[in-house]
Design a protein around this nucleic acid. Sequence first.
DNA 1: TATTGTTATACTCTATAACTATA
DNA 2: TATAGTTATAGAGTATAACAATA
Lengths: 176, 176
Amino acid sequence: MPETSVANTLRRPRALRKPATAAPARAAPAPDSDAKIDTSYLESLLGYNARRAALAVIGVFLQRMAPFGLRPVDFSVLTLIAHNPGITSRQLCAALDILPPNLVGMIKSLDKRGLIERRPHPTDRRAQGLHLSPGGKKLQKEAQATATKLERDVANRLSDEELERLKELLQRVYSR
Amino acid sequence: MPETSVANTLRRPRALRKPATAAPARAAPAPDSDAKIDTSYLESLLGYNARRAALAVIGVFLQRMAPFGLRPVDFSVLTLIAHNPGITSRQLCAALDILPPNLVGMIKSLDKRGLIERRPHPTDRRAQGLHLSPGGKKLQKEAQATATKLERDVANRLSDEELERLKELLQRVYSR
DNA sequence: TATTGTTATACTCTATAACTATA
DNA sequence: TATAGTTATAGAGTATAACAATA
């Protein structure tokens, strides 16, 4: 048994995966995959609901950030650099719970795109301070505005108060 | 740009990954990865909070389900079969948003462990009805009890009413 | 001796194409 | 022609070990 597997229960919104082959002229009615399956127990579990909600938000996020060429993790990295100029790779890893070897490629990619600059660290010659380039600042600003707007759109069935309440309850679940 | 990447922003709880090499005798204070990094903006985003909460719950889930040899997806499959005897693979895929090729191995594994039985479908000879074996029923029952208890433990900072409220708010986010 | 950034690498998860046997 | 279950395979995400330079 792999101890290292979170696995699904739920995945990316179907809409983002397959363009849904138009109207399927339904030839074989047979078992009917759309039949009434009882999922009520799973729907009573917090983890199930939290994961579905997270994937719903991420799905919209993927769509709206596509024009910027940013995945959620890229946005997180750019945003942390924007709010913490001179941050090191190690600090990014700690804040985002990313393993160092897996961050290397992302930083390299953002650097190649000219969005960030790697400067020598003022006090530690092993490390390098990360900064946004002018273009990176512009992109991050637009992306952050998009994320902020997305926030309201994706929770359009919730009032402002309910959205704040939801985030507060979520924080009480994961804050140790 | 891969259109098919949800990516992290957050990952599995650190506790489940590395036993944290005891007390690190801190030799190089240098940049100090534990420094005060401003993550306030990310923490204001619904998706970030939902994902962190989901991962926190899943982390506890992984620990407590390990004795049963069940990942979240395995538990979901067993539970849906338990509550929907005779369900087909296709129906499982639709309910859990799993792609058929990726379900094959899971079903095969659960079958090999003697937890489920694949019987010929009553009306469609292409399909097979899935059922729990006696051992499967016992395991699923114990696992479900564990999941139900876990529910209260992981949200121990929330009252019963707050937990119900949280799940209701989450459902209003992802229900279309 | 410990840490930063890095390479190489392996394993898991997710996705697409294509096959067979039925419908 | 379309669907159920399946195989093979490719790609993205996540994990560990180990190295050179520096602390």
